[in-house]
C-alpha cells in the first residue's frame, strides 16, 4: 500500500518560493487502479516525483507498505510523459528494457528472457533490435511501458503517458494498460489531465485542485469491468462521473485552490 500523508512541496525559498503542493493525502491499495486528474499546472508531476522518491517533499510523508520512501524504491517503476526523452536513443529497444534489470539479474540470459516477456506483453515482439527513434510515438511509449513491466514492480506510476500520441493510439494504449493490469495485478497510479481517460481506466479518481494543490475529492468509479472503449463510454453512469469530475476541475481552474479540501465527499459515489 502506498500512502501519502499531508504532502507539501515548495520550490525555492523566501519571497521567490512557489508552493506547488499544499496538502495531499491519499492512499493507493494493492492492485488498485487510481487516476489523478487536475488542471494544468496543478503539480501533478511534482507529486509523482515525490511518490517515486525523485523529489524530497518539503513536509509530509510518503510510505510504501509502512516504510518511508526516501529514494527511488525497487517496488516502483515509472513511465514518464515524454517517451522521446525517457528512452536512451543509443540503445536498442531490448537494451532499453533490459537496462534496469542489470542489478536484478546477473545472467544476461535471464535478463533477455524477462525483456522478451515484457515486449511480448506490449505487443512489440520482433522489435527488440530496433532503435527507439525508428519507432512511432505510440510504439516508443509501449517500450517505456515494457521497461516498467520488466522491472516487475508492485506499483507502476504513469505520468501523463499518453499525452503526446494521437487519439487512436491513445485508446489502444489505454486498453493495453487495462489488459496488463488484469494480467499482472500490478497497482497502477496514473496521472492525466484527460477526464475521460481517468474515468475510463480507474477504480478511483483523485481530483486535485489548481496550484497550490490539495485533494478536492476522491471519486470512486463504479463502472463494470472489463471496460470497453465503446460500451463503457456509452453508459449513462460514465457520463455522470465524467460530468462530476469535469465540474470539479472547471471550478478549481477558475477559483484556484480550495481553502478547505473536502476529501470525504461522497457526491460521486452512488450508494
Amino acid at each position: 500500500m502506498l500512502s501519502v500523508t499531508n504532502l507539501r512541496k515548495t520550490y525555492g525559498s523566501g519571497g521567490q518560493a512557489v508552493e506547488a503542493i499544499r496538502d495531499l493525502t491519499l492512499t493507493v491499495d494493492k492492485g488498485e487502479f487510481v487516476c489523478i486528474v487536475g488542471p494544468s499546472g496543478a503539480g501533478k508531476t511534482t507529486m509523482l516525483k515525490c511518490l517515486c522518491g525523485l523529489l524530497k517533499p518539503s513536509s509530509g510523508t510518503v510510505t510504501l507498505d509502512g516504510a518511508p520512501v526516501t529514494g527511488p524504491p525497487k517496488e516502483i517503476a515509472s513511465v514518464f510523459q515524454d517517451y522521446s526523452r525517457s528512452l536512451m536513443p543509443w540503445f536498442t529497444v531490448q537494451r532499453n528494457v533490459g537496462l534496469p534489470l542489470r542489478n536484478r539479474y546477473r545472467s544476461a540470459a535471464d535478463r533477455a528472457e524477462r525483456v522478451a516477456t515484457a515486449l511480448d506483453a506490449v505487443g512489440l515482439s520482433g522489435f527488440g533490435d530496433r532503435y527507439p527513434w525508428q519507432l512511432s510515438g505510440g510504439m516508443q511509449q509501449r517500450v517505456a511501458i515494457a521497461r516498467g513491466l520488466a522491472y516487475a514492480p508492485e506499483i507502476l506510476l504513469l505520468d501523463e503517458p499518453f499525452a503526446s500520441v494521437d487519439a487512436q493510439t491513445r485508446a489502444d494504449l489505454e486498453d493495453l494498460i487495462l489488459r496488463v493490469r488484469d494480467d499482472t495485478g500490478v497497482t497502477m497510479l496514473l496521472v492525466t489531465h484527460d477526464i475521460d481517460e481517468a474515468v475510463y481506466l480507474a477504480d478511483r479518481v483523485v481530483v486535485m485542485s489548481a496550484r497550490p494543490s490539495v485533494v478536492l475529492e476522491t471519486v470512486p468509479v463504479d463502472l463494470p469491468r472489463p471496460r470497453d472503449q465503446v460500451t463503457t463510454k456509452r453508459l449513462p453512469r460514465f457520463a455522470e462521473l465524467r460530468a462530476h469530475v469535469l465540474t470539479l476541475i472547471r471550478r478549481t481552474a477558475l477559483d484556484g485552490a480550495a481553502p478547505t479540501p473536502d476529501q470525504h465527499s461522497t457526491i460521486g459515489a452512488r450508494r
Binding site: K49, C52, G53, L54, P72, K74, I76, A77, S78, F80, D82, R85, S86, M88, W90, F91, L99, P100, R102, N103, R147, Y151
Partner: peptide, 26 residues
C-alpha cells in the same frame, strides 16, 4: 537531458551505470 537522469535514478542504476550507460553516451 535531466529527464534521462530521472529515468536512471528511478530505476536505481548505480552511479557507475549512470555514467557508462546514460551520461557518457549522451
Amino acid at each position: 537531458d535531466p529527464h534521462l537522469e530521472d529515468v536512471a535514478r528511478s530505476y536505481r542504476l548505480t552511479p557507475a551505470q549512470r555514467l557508462a550507460f546514460v551520461l557518457l553516451p549522451a
